[in-house]
Design a protein around this nucleic acid. Structure first.
Lengths: 226, 226
DNA sequence: ATTCCGCTTCGTCAATCGCCAAACATGCGG
DNA sequence: CCGCATGTTTGGCGATTGACGAAGCGGAAT
């Protein structure tokens, strides 16, 4: 749930020119004293100090992770004052969810996780992909302005695109075809029917086309587990 | 310039349940072989492998940083194929810029960096702030829908808010006053005039109000240097 | 079948980190 | 001036990392 914030904090610390000061910045934001933070971590306060003052030049990522996660989950456990104030806002209402995987996952795994039936592209199932986007097809078409299409693609474009609210399955594939950047996997969630044209287009673009009859909620749950 | 992407990669690696695989994911995205990456780093290929396979349980952040920055800058130096494909897209056109500082900076430093004159709140100048947002006042008012106001605040709300295109300086402060989350510093960039009401409101909210007659470009340059 | 290639595994060694305990410094109320 | 709390510094010891290079493995190309 707080993965976003956690990653952000960690990333900032790692590439900072002075990781120590950045760490301190976050500790201050969370309004914790070195001692308090140390006690949460179950270590000596000097350890926290060591990091902040840079005596430990290149702390392990394990340590950084522990620090960051400790702060976030402590705050969360105490009402989440700080955490909620930084929550993700943003977002076009047509985009239900955008996630990146921490590691590359073969398309086959995704398909299985969402109970999908492959309609086209059976021969590309081992390709790894790195994230997914879930879009409301209707709203996307009515509310997207040119630039928004770019948003659908998160950080990697080797990704899966899920559409809800699909009637015949033509327009989404046409949109995909028209767009210069292509996903590797397109999945319709509980579509009405799926037009033949859709799978033809998919084959042309060498995209794996899949349908699933699970609900959006079930799909999301399946994806979370990956 | 690629700080955003760099941070994201680093953050993802640090919090990943298997940093090695995540690292590999990124190497693959950048289409580098272990050998190639190793040569860029000036180390033996086996080193890269050791990281990816997790023999180093908790590599130092220095190492992670080097890896990540090497990939990004290599790609950038060779046309930036990958990097540009992941560039920041998104964003409301009213928001010119959103940045976070790596460390907390006293308000006074910011004011100085942008050549500002303090109009209210002289007694809060040492307070640290953690980021800034630059907004086009006119466009904000006409194009923002409720939710967008949340966007103005990046990750930390202990931040500075800069407005361009200010006529009298009333509306921006009224918007700030109406909003539940407050910035610590509000700065008008080349405002027409600044209404007395603005500084009154600022005092009420204990916000430091500043004006600068530098151009937007100069202000941005000043902020970059911090 | 042999050679290449990229990736993996492993033993090794110096440099560095992770952590503690105890000393040091600073600030605050009495 | 003293205690007391909080944060900083220091010395040191064992565990781990960062790096190398040799050797092994499996698939693709010759």
């Amino acid at each position: 749930m707080d993965a976003q914030l956690t990653r952000r904090m960690a990333g900032e610390i790692v590439v900072s020119d002075s990781p120590g000061e950045t760490l301190r910045k976050w500790r201050e934001i969370f309004q914790l004293s070195q001692k308090h933070l140390a006690s949460l971590l179950g270590v000596n306060p000097s350890v926290v100090c060591d990091f902040e003052k840079g005596r430990r030049r290149s702390p392990g990522i394990g340590t950084v992770r522990r620090l960051v996660e400790t702060m976030v989950s402590y705050d969360r456990a105490h009402g989440g004052r700080i955490v909620t104030s930084m929550e993700g806002q943003q977002g076009n209402s047509a985009i239900t969810s955008i996630q990146e995987f921490a590691i590359g996952l073969p398309i086959a795994n995704i398909v299985e996780a969402v109970g999908g039936k492959v309609l086209a592209g059976e021969d590309e199932l081992e390709r790894p992909i790195y994230g997914y986007t879930i879009v409301d097809a209707l709203r996307a078409i009515t509310t997207f302005s040119g630039a928004n299409f770019g948003q659908m693609y998160g950080w990697s474009n080797e990704r899966a695109l899920f559409f809800t609210g699909v009637k015949f399955g033509r327009s989404p594939m046409i949109a995909v075809r028209a767009h210069p950047v292509k996903p590797r996997l397109v999945c319709y969630i509980q579509p009405g029917s799926v037009d033949k044209l859709a799978s033809t287009l998919a084959k042309m673009e060498r995209i794996v086309l899949v349908r699933t009859d699970l609900s959006l909620g079930q799909v999301q749950a399946g994806l979370e587990k990956l």
